[in-house]
Design a protein around this nucleic acid. Structure first.
Lengths: 151, 151
DNA sequence: TCCGTATATTTGTCATACTAATTATTATTG
DNA sequence: CAATAATAATTAGTATGACAAATATACGGA
């Protein structure tokens, strides 16, 4: 039983290296953004004009974190906050022309960087990894709801 | 090719949930430390009286991060910095009595928390996960050394 | 319509990561 | 031995992550 604990260490360590490696390449190639900022841009490109709440869900970030990343993207003129006509509480996050250009310029390079991790691994490994990570993810739902699992 | 990019998102998301879930349980059960602080204590218990540099390597943390975590553990009286007789640049990090007691008290509970992730998964999954994560990890070595891979 | 509640965003605080720079000490080398 | 390089630890700055609280707005029911 005890040995199974190692997964948490491995996961943490690997996820950090993946991000660190990508950020290192981003810096070397002067992309001018962080890896997390890239994830936001990429999501915005696929689902245009999301509210920050929706964007946070797609990107797997919480709302305070997303607010701050959007702040940085706004200061870099890559996105802008637009009034949401149907709800004055929320904004719509909109890609600027510079933001779209950034995505076009970097997409291919980012793919290359991401694929470095996948050497010596194959399609089947990818399916295993997806399944295992998804299972862990759903195993650890923190349930505040009506099913009343844990406090 | 493009789809393989998803691994980075999955890894990051899963690692964050694993840590968040554990921290949530730590808080509920009033362990009085963070998940990362626990990892340091656990390592110190296995390899007594390491220097901060060695400890950082075992724990997979960088040195500035380790310095700060040790600061927090010192302020909680769980470890202390002792002079290293053979090298006045470095310290030896030593578990206090309270630190040892903390480890004994929490070990079983932490194991239970960690095992929650492993429902619906088996030994074979564990081996797959270990192998895949280790492969990714070594694929992404950032080599500043003599082999001269990338700038 | 008014009131209480829910929601979207923001702000604050603490902890963790990564980078770069600083300090004190040790090791190396001419 | 003296000058230089390398190393252990720290500090500073920025970004992210989690959680709580505050604010503004929307929604539901009396």
């Amino acid at each position: 039983m005890e040995q199974y604990n190692a997964y948490s260490f491995l996961l943490d360590r690997t996820a950090r290296r993946v991000k660190q490696y990508a950020q290192y390449q981003f810096n070397c190639q002067q992309f001018g953004i962080t890896v997390d900022q890239w994830a936001i841009l990429k999501n915005l490109n696929q689902h245009t004009d999301l509210s920050q709440k929706e964007l946070a869900e797609y990107c797997g970030k919480d709302q305070p974190t997303l607010t701050r990343i959007v702040d940085l993207l706004v200061s870099k003129d890559l996105v802008e906050r637009r009034a949401n006509p149907t709800d004055r509480r929320s904004f719509v996050v909109h890609l600027t022309t510079a933001g779209k250009r950034k995505i076009e310029t970097l997409s291919g390079e980012v793919n290359k960087i991401r694929m470095q991790a996948w050497q010596n691994l194959n399609e089947e490994d990818f399916e295993h990894l997806k399944r295992i990570l998804d299972t862990i993810y759903t195993n650890l739902e923190i349930d505040n709801g009506s099913t009343g699992n844990l406090r």
